[in-house]
Simulated assay, not measured.
Amino acid sequence: MGVGATDYYVRGKSWPRTINDMAGEAILNACADAGIHVRQIDGIAYYSGAGAGYLDKFDTASLMETLGIPHVGFSASLTSGGGGCPGAIGLATAGLMNEDCTYTVTLMALQQLPQHRLGVVFGASAPNPENSFLQPSGLVGPGHLMSVLARRHMHLYGTTQDAFAEIVMATRANTANRPKAVRKAPLSKADYDASPMLADPLRRLDFCLETDGAVAVITTTAERAKDCRHPPALVHGCAHGGTRRWGRAFAWMGMPDPEFASSGHAWVADRLWEQTGLRAADMDVALLYDHFSPMVLMQLEDYGFCAKGEGNDYVLAGKVRYDRGAGVNGGVPVNTHGGNLNEAYIIGMTHIVEGVEQVRGTAINQVTDAEFALVTGGPASLPVSGMVLRRA
């Protein structure tokens, strides 16, 4: 794989750059990382319905014209949203295995201008049968909806806000040495407690960043990857989808327990472990989609790092920490790059970059002898996805 990114900007600070400008830079950087020319790209695997941060749309023809790509034999997209970011790499491998293409790019670019914000996307939507329930209830953004799932988990399993704080602090500790990270200042429990309550029980720091920027990933076959610039990160397994009972996720209040108080990943996790013959205990690092801190805890449960309802104690035991020693107390370091909460929110793509660098052995916060990295997408509306990257 080749990986590339732009700088990361606080929401609205990327102007006068455009979506295509940032996407193009990320793709060129990924090509340079892979050691290929941009004209060798002949496939594009999108997710989020080819949506650029839900606020714009990618167009294959425009990207080809902008970058001088002569032809593509594969152009496809997963539906729904950020849950598809690892799944889009699986989509790319499908095109490669079918010999439709030779080098496939997956990308995401995000630019939130003042009049366009993800944080109020449901409140800004036109009324429909679902929104007509959500909007009068004050559930105008993903954070408001996620707070209801978090509160249900607290009710069922005794989960505490202290566990959410620990996730935020543990991943913040991983950004102090990262030049591009948006949030790098040390974070104490007192700092977390002083963060404004936006959607009880979620404070502002439980919400991911709102970031502008772009990330691109080049996928090719294992044979071609031998000639690339860096040791390859091998796609050891990838699964996407989900169950009807999870469905529209936090945009749908009709889910029964236990799905309601979950990340919606259990079914995908089972498929991924069956596909690879691995388990959570085999992972050296976990890059878990963290648009909201409670969803990290629920993914730890759904992927089997701990049993259902034990996420609170697992997290509070320091088991997601990298800065206290990778894998402390039998745990797994989580989001060694800082994640969506602290480094940048490019709808999950930074997690893939970190996974690639971890198994290459070139990450800033390198886990010693990392062989397997778990990368997840979502929790979100279906499909959600997970991927295991393996050291070559």
Rank of each mutant, 00 (worst) to 15 (best):
N312P: 05
A261F: 00
L209D: 06
H230C: 00
Y289I: 01
A266S: 09
N329R: 12
V320R: 00
P294E: 10
V296I: 15
P231Y: 02
V332M: 07
V268L: 04
N312T: 01
A225R: 03
E210C: 04
D206S: 03
P294H: 10
V268G: 05
F305H: 15
Q299F: 00
V315F: 03
R271Y: 10
E210A: 13
N312I: 04
D313G: 10
C228I: 01
M253H: 11
D302C: 10
L316E: 04
L297I: 14
K226C: 09
L288P: 14
A251M: 14
P256G: 09
F292K: 01
A326Q: 07
V296K: 10
W273T: 03
D212G: 04
W267H: 13
G277D: 12
R224V: 10
W273I: 08
P258G: 11
D257W: 01
E210K: 10
G318S: 06
F260M: 08
L288G: 07
V320Y: 04
K319Q: 13
R224E: 13
T220G: 00
L272S: 03
P231W: 08
Y322Q: 07
E274T: 15
T276Q: 11
E210W: 13
P333C: 08
T221I: 05
L234Q: 12
R271L: 15
A269G: 14
A239W: 03
M253T: 09
V315Q: 11
F207Q: 06
T220P: 01
A269C: 11
A269I: 13
D290Y: 13
D200R: 14
L297V: 12
Q299N: 05
A214H: 06
A251T: 14
W267S: 15
H291V: 06
A266K: 09
W246Q: 00
G304F: 05
A261Y: 01
L272D: 05
G213L: 09
R248W: 11
F250C: 07
Q275S: 13
A225D: 07
R229A: 13
V217G: 03
R271V: 01
S262Q: 13
N312E: 02
D302W: 05
L272I: 10
R229T: 12
V235H: 01
Q275G: 01
L278Y: 02
F305Q: 04
D302R: 08
K319C: 10
P333R: 12
H230Y: 14
C208I: 05
E259M: 11
R245T: 15
E274N: 15
Y289H: 15
P294N: 08
Q299E: 14
W252Q: 08
A251E: 09
G304P: 13
A261E: 04
V268M: 06
P231F: 07
K319E: 07
A261Q: 02
R244W: 08
D257S: 08
V285N: 10
H240G: 09
C306R: 02
A199L: 00
R271E: 14
E223F: 00
G254M: 03
W273N: 02
L288A: 06
A216M: 03
I218T: 06
V328F: 14
M253G: 14
L202I: 13
